[in-house]
Nucleic acid binder design. Sequence first.
DNA 1: TAGACGGCGCATCGCC
DNA 2: GGCGATGCG
DNA 3: GTCTA
Length: 223
Amino acid sequence: NSFCTLLAFAMNGTIIDTLAKVAEVYRSNGVVYRYKAYRTAIDTIKGLDFEITSADQVKGLKGIGKGMIDKIAEILRTGALQQEKDVTSDPVNQALRLFTSVHGIGPVLARQLVEQGYRTLEDLKAAHLPPAARMGLAHYEDGKERIPFAEVEDHLAHMRQLMHGAVDPALIPVVCGSHRRLGPTSGDVDVLLTQPLSHSQAASKYVYLRLVVKALRDAGYVP
DNA sequence: TAGACGGCGCATCGCC
DNA sequence: GGCGATGCG
DNA sequence: GTCTA
């Protein structure tokens, strides 16, 4: 629609993708704040309504300092970022990125697994893993699956019915996240449980959360 | 130029 | 088992 | 990496 025209500028895309790869390496190495700094800069560039032709154009914008300016300038000048080539081609970084993409494996465990010589997800099947990571590995492919818009609607319908019948008729699930923004698919379903008409504070979030989880469980919706 | 950068529940681990 | 620290999302 | 006190 006219309010959120998809603005795709080739050079901005290159810059975003390049910075995102470097950011991912930091994240998988546990360097969280540097990772977040990259995310901030990336979000700023994503929001631009013009194509970057000179690094000066983004000087002073949120999250963009000298470091980012230099990187952007290099990408504009050479078409790529040497640092990005270096860090992403490193086998250890590749394994760290792969392992931390498994739900339940963070930078610390990923590093330990690499030190133990593991390099592929196939390798990990033979590794000693905590239950959460074992679960994440078992559902690795499924976890990457995107959920079609219509399917999210089905989930919400089920949930409304469940809330109304088994928990509290006043409890209304409100969808947020990508589905609320009308994305064609969603990675997950974010739901806010609200109680619009309630003037009571009697029920603590814990009481409700337990009721909700139990209802979902009894319905066979979650294990 | 040092320190902040979100806060929190749950699972696990090391120590007592 | 209790308890604080750490990892993770 | 960036920003602020």
